[in-house]
Design a binder for these strands. Structure first.
Lengths: 114, 114
DNA sequence: CGGAATCCGTAACGATACTG
DNA sequence: CAGTATCGTTACGGATTCCG
């Protein structure tokens, strides 16, 4: 039978640690920094790529698709030539902003520059 | 010259996004769940392994070592036979607990069980 | 009991070229 | 402009064996 990401199988139930569920969503290498850049405004594909200088189109696309699947990011396609696509946070994505902020503040307060 | 995990090199400065720094610390597959299990009490090695049923000794050791390097976890060795090692959160690790809690609450409130 | 050392497989990341 | 498709690489997790 199915096993959870963490924990024993419990009958037909799958016991998943909530904290781990959250981690799963933001685990991609670029996920949180994408969310961070969308937290203040809607951005176009190329704009995001400029903000994340070392990311390739392919991987940026993949990370965005995964965030879409997890309902964190909304993708709006404008049927124009040349094409225009805008990414923004969904309500779920927006509800995550405070956690991003906590993470940033915690880092600045506690982490020494390495 | 050195490049940051995110961003352009800026003179001799390395500009690192604080949010990304935090992510780097908790990025390991078992990191946050280990922190979570240490948040309430000190635990021994085998105890942790029992709590994380599908983890092997090798990987548990590695994750703990990395958390030690990042000053999140303290390792206390008792010179006895048989050996006894206790893991606990450092002050830095403890200061991270509120974020873990936010993540858990956010998950429970917003994430539908999949 | 709490590791260390080794090896392996896969998934994630990444570079490049091409396209509507 | 915003992708897709393909392929290469690397890092991470995991299994196993051995040890004080």
């Amino acid at each position: 039978m199915a096993k959870s990401r963490f924990g024993e199988p419990v009958g037909d139930q799958i016991e998943v640690c909530p904290v781990t569920q959250t981690q799963d969503i933001i685990a991609g290498k670029w996920k949180i920094i994408i969310l961070w850049n969308l937290s203040t405004q809607t951005r176009r594909f190329n704009e995001l790529q400029r903000l994340l200088p070392n990311i390739s189109k392919g991987i940026l696309t993949r990370q965005l698709r995964e965030l879409e699947e997890d309902q964190m990011v909304h993708r709006e396609v404008y049927k124009e030539v040349p094409p225009k696509v805008e990414y923004s946070l969904t309500p779920l994505g927006q509800s995550f902003i405070p956690i991003l902020q906590s993470m940033g503040e915690w880092s600045k307060k506690n982490l020494v520059s390495k």
